[in-house]
Each structure stands twice: as structure tokens, then as C-alpha cells.
């Protein structure tokens, strides 16, 4: 099994292995022809598989170990970035990166969750699981953005807020609630993007926004499929089934008007073409920055409130 590919991608992996094997002898005209035909076959197969992904397969892509993380986008998309640290009260949370950033002529405040790729990085960034001090740092920076009329861009990528003893002792609930409370009337535009995994309250605490975007193969959910399965099926291994019930992919959420825009991904997902992915995200961010630029604060808040108060379906 090729570990660069997910289980449902194995037929593609087999073709790619064949293509790679031929690489060394491609000077031969016949073999070059054979390679071209295999490449075409691989592309068609990828298109076919990706045309009908299940919600569980999308969840796997959203958490793909080679998916781009916040720091990758900062490096590749932002023209300038000055990191700002700490919540001024307790510590600096490495799961949440923040700072003043610039893309083209747009200055903005940035906050984003970072999962980490190597084991060492993962531990340093706490797997993207934010603690109260991370949310408080985010709030501090958002208040700063409001003060200096900078729009806010947030990247969401977290399995959830960190469920630890210290996090509970320092008021994880209060930190999340306070962010929602303040963000609901913050007098500056907020643009949130789910770049991978949007895990529950831990995501929402930097996700309340005027515009919420999601990469096509990212997920945003009230509970992880594993958590849902362990509660409702008493069996976390039924996560694949729970994933289908939770309707947590970008397509479902857009249809239910719970998010605003979907950012496309290259064929095979972000990790298959990082450069193209960066371009897609950059274009989407500039488009949103431009469209919110001329909007008065009164109108911005009126629309934000209309949106927040409109969430929910019920009968009366």
C-alpha cells in the first residue's frame, strides 16, 4: 500500500507507481507513449473517484497529513507577516498563530490555527488544539484590529478546543464564549476560512464572521465523527457512518446556508498541487477583502446580526 495515498485512492496509487517505474526508461518512444496513456488513465481515474467522494472520504482529505497548514499559507500567500504573541495574562499558545499581515495592498489582522506536520511540530503546536490563552490572544488581536480598522482574516484548522485539566481550570468555556460575545459586534469585517478541520466550539471561537469560506474538501462540525460515533453508537470505529449523518462537508453546509463560499481544490486535493491551492485561496481572500472594504460598519453589523439570528430551522 502506498502511504502517500488514502485507502480509496489506492487504484490511483497503483497507476502512479507504474508511471514512476517507467520514468527511468522514458527515452524510448514506445515507453513514452505508454507513459502518456497511463498518465491520462490516472487523471481520468482520479476525476472519477473524486467526482463521487463520500463524506467520510472528504473527512480523511480534510485531515490529510500532507495538507497545507496555516504556516504554509502564511509563507506562500502573505507578502508581509509580523507575528504577535501572547494573551498578556498567562502564556503564548502555539496552536494559534496571530499577527499583522499584508497581501497585495491589503493590510489585515491574521489569526489561524496550526496543527504541525512532524511529530515535534505537532507537539509544539498541540495538534492545533487551542487552549483558553490561545482564544484570549485571538481576542486581543481582534480588538487591536478593531481599534486600527483592520479587517480580520482567520484560518480554522483544529480537531477542537483542548480538553485538558489546565484548559478547564483557566476557563475554556469562558474563553470561547467571550470571543463569540465580542466578535458578534466587533466593528471591523471578519473573514473566516476553514482550511482543513473545523472542530466544534474550538473552531467557532475564531469562526464567527461576516463571510465564512471553506476549502472544498474541508469539514466543519458540531462534533467529530469519532466523538459522535462513540456517543450514539458506543463505538468510535463507526466514525465513517457518523460522518455521513453529520452533514459536515462544504457542499452540505453551503446548501444549508451555514457557510457562504466554497474555495475549489485542485484535482486530488490541496496536497496534490500546493501552488494552485495557494492561488485559489489568495484569490478568494482578495475578493472578500475587496467586497467588504466599502461596506459601512452599520451595514456590516446589520448584515452580521441578520445572519447570526437567522441560523436555525424550526416550526412554530
Amino acid at each position: 500500500m502506498n502511504l502517500n495515498y488514502l485507502d480509496f485512492e489506492q487504484p490511483i496509487a497503483e497507476l502512479e507507481d507504474k508511471i514512476e517505474a517507467l520514468e527511468s526508461v522514458k527515452d524510448d518512444a514506445d515507453i513514452a507513449k505508454e507513459m502518456d496513456s497511463l498518465k491520462l488513465k490516472s487523471e481520468l481515474l482520479t476525476k472519477k473517484i473524486f467526482a463521487s467522494l463520500s463524506d467520510w472520504q472528504i473527512s480523511q482529505l480534510a485531515r490529510h497529513p500532507q495538507r497545507l497548514y496555516t504556516l504554509d499559507y502564511i509563507e506562500n500567500i502573505f507578502d508581509e507577516f509580523t507575528e504577535l504573541h501572547g494573551d498578556r495574562t498567562f502564556s503564548n499558545d502555539h496552536s494559534l498563530i496571530g499577527g499583522i499581515a499584508k497581501i497585495d495592498e491589503f493590510n489585515f489582522m491574521f489569526i489561524g490555527q496550526q496543527k504541525g506536520r512532524s511529530t515535534k511540530e505537532k507537539i509544539f503546536h498541540n495538534f492545533g488544539m487551542t487552549r483558553p490563552e490561545g482564544y484570549r490572544k485571538a481576542l486581543r488581536l481582534m480588538k487591536l484590529a478593531e481599534k486600527f480598522s483592520l479587517p480580520i482574516i482567520s484560518f480554522i484548522d483544529t480537531p477542537g478546543a483542548y480538553p485538558g485539566i489546565g484548559a478547564e481550570e483557566r476557563g475554556q468555556s469562558e474563553a470561547i464564549a467571550r470571543n463569540l460575545f465580542e466578535m458578534s459586534t466587533l466593528k471591523t469585517p471578519i473573514i473566516a476560512t476553514v482550511i482543513g478541520e473545523g472542530g466544534s466550539g474550538g473552531a467557532l471561537a475564531i469562526g464567527l464572521s461576516d463571510t465564512t469560506m471553506m476549502f472544498a474538501y474541508s469539514i466543519y462540525s458540531v462534533i467529530s465523527p469519532e466523538g459522535c460515533a462513540s456517543i450514539l453508537y458506543k463505538d468510535a470505529s463507526k466514525a465513517n457512518i457518523a460522518a455521513e449523518s453529520l452533514k459536515m462537508t462544504s457542499k452540505h453546509l453551503k446548501k444549508n446556508k451555514l457557510i457562504d463560499k466554497i474555495i475549489p481544490e485542485p484535482l486530488g486535493g490541496i496536497h496534490r498541487d500546493p501552488e494552485k491551492s495557494c492561488n485559489f485561496l489568495k484569490k478568494a481572500l482578495i475578493r472578500e477583502l475587496k467586497s467588504l472594504q466599502g461596506v459601512s460598519i452599520e451595514e456590516l453589523l446589520r448584515e452580521r446580526h441578520k445572519k447570526l439570528l437567522g441560523f436555525g430551522r424550526f416550526s412554530e
Binding site: 470561547i176 464564549a177 463569540l180 458578534s184 466544534s200 466550539g201 467557532l204 464567527l208 466543519y220 462540525s221 458540531v222 462534533i223 459522535c228 456517543i231 450514539l232 453529520l246 452533514k247 459536515m248 453546509l253 444549508n256 451555514l258 447570526l308 439570528l309 441560523f311 436555525g312 430551522r313
Partner: peptide, 15 residues
Amino acid sequence: ARMQEGLFSLMQMSK
């Protein structure tokens, strides 16, 4: 949050 209403429930936190 009530997981049977998915992200609709999560958004009640903002609301």
C-alpha cells in the same frame, strides 16, 4: 450542543 442538528446547533452558540 445537540449533535442531531449538526452545524445548525453549533451556530446557536453564536446566535
